[in-house]
Design a protein around this nucleic acid. Structure first.
Lengths: 217, 217
DNA sequence: ATATCAATCTAAAGATTGTTAGATCAATTT
DNA sequence: AAATTGATCTAACAATCTTTAGATTGATAT
């Protein structure tokens, strides 16, 4: 490209770097995963269901836009979002997409029309109930994600372990299960299982990114 | 693409439609222009310094992401942003870009290191000064953009007319000139001219999009 | 030193965009 | 009806991006 271009073009070009990072579905999925906490390339590839080579290539793009940062830990390279602003952007672009694209709203409604879907609720009143122990807020993500960040008063019980740890859950109390956010199905599966076992369980579609809780390093 | 894909992939794909709309510098420039008010393809092409064909193709993309809408007005097709959320997104992605990309910060600082650059100021105190008439807030964009939306107590004086309308400006008062936003140079040029003519003029880098003022149709 | 594992780099095929030219369409003017 | 103007559509080429394979690097384990 010519070097004689106006400073104005340069400015828009820089902003477009962020847009480019956000224009691939898989890169967005990687951002969402990183909003849950730092992860190695291997883990990211597995959780996004892509090859490690492809994951590495996408992460390269995200790093080119400075949305993610890396450190090496032995054989592994650990990726994390650069700061809280990245998670906020992920929530913001998703919210615009939901506002503008009927297709997305329909798909979400389809996901939500499922037994145990929780009505949108005031956050502080949910926290109050959880604090008093009147409901159990259950984080069904992998344990390391819980450690990196979790909702207030939440208890960790990864989906995979849930089946074998039902005894830990007091009967008769409402269980509010959540996972990585509205696009994640872990909490839905957890609610299905819990209801089958006779619990009063509902799914909270929001996760740490939506609550503005940044993962600690 | 295969049709057997998971619902999850479908969700990320929808969000990526918004990212795709925002991954081209010229499309971003078109969004910024539309944040100032509705415009015909012809006008957009001229103001973004591209051919009408190219403008039309880019606008097609923006419409595919439902970020803009159109109506026909005689021979002209008028484009406008779909709603306020689009303008908010434009401010948000720009702010993330500024947060993450040193190159962008440097370019902006270079623009700001110019006589008459205004220190970031509290909005309500500026409005108070403008209301009392202690400063003149001057909108130097084209008149139709002023009509579509403008800052409180602002007075319209398009850059092109400024030279011939200096007599309308009371001497001895501070003039705060603004235009389309931080990436626009009209206010800078206006301040240059005013200072040459002996006025105490400063540039406010923000515009209607940054102040959250949506253009009326 | 050799082997192994996680990750990246390089190169190349395939798919997707960006951009332009020419034809076409829709509304208005003559 | 014909000409004009603004805008879009179609087709094509160039440029870019996605994805995979093969070679390479950095760190650890044997």
């Amino acid at each position: 490209m010519k070097d004689s271009r106006h400073i104005k073009d340069l400015l828009y070009e820089q902003v477009a770097r962020i847009g480019k990072a956000a224009c691939s579905p898989k890169r967005l999925e990687l951002i969402e995963l990183l909003c849950q906490g730092e992860k190695s390339v291997e883990t990211l590839a597995r959780e996004a269901a892509i090859s490690m080579k492809l994951a590495s290539a996408h992460l390269r793009e995200l790093r080119a836009a400075r949305l993610v940062e890396t450190t090496r830990q032995g054989k592994n390279v650990i990726y994390r979002i650069a700061n809280r602003a990245v998670a906020e952007f992920w929530v913001a672009i998703r919210s615009l997409a939901e506002d503008r694209l009927v297709e997305l709203r329909l798909a979400l409604e389809q996901m939500a029309s499922h037994p145990g879907e929780m009505a949108p609720q005031d956050r502080s009143s949910l926290v109050k109930l959880a604090k008093k122990g009147e409901v159990i807020v259950l984080d069904v993500r992998p344990a390391n994600e819980f450690e990196a960040a979790h909702l207030p008063f939440a208890r960790s019980m990864p989906l995979e372990e849930l089946k074998n740890r039902l005894a830990e859950l007091p009967a008769g109390k409402t269980i509010v299960a959540y996972c990585r956010g509205p696009y994640c199905l872990m909490a839905r599966d957890a609610v299905d299982l819990l209801r089958k076992k006779g619990y009063d369980a509902v799914r909270l579609s929001e996760g740490v990114a939506e609550w503005g809780i940044a993962p600690v390093r």
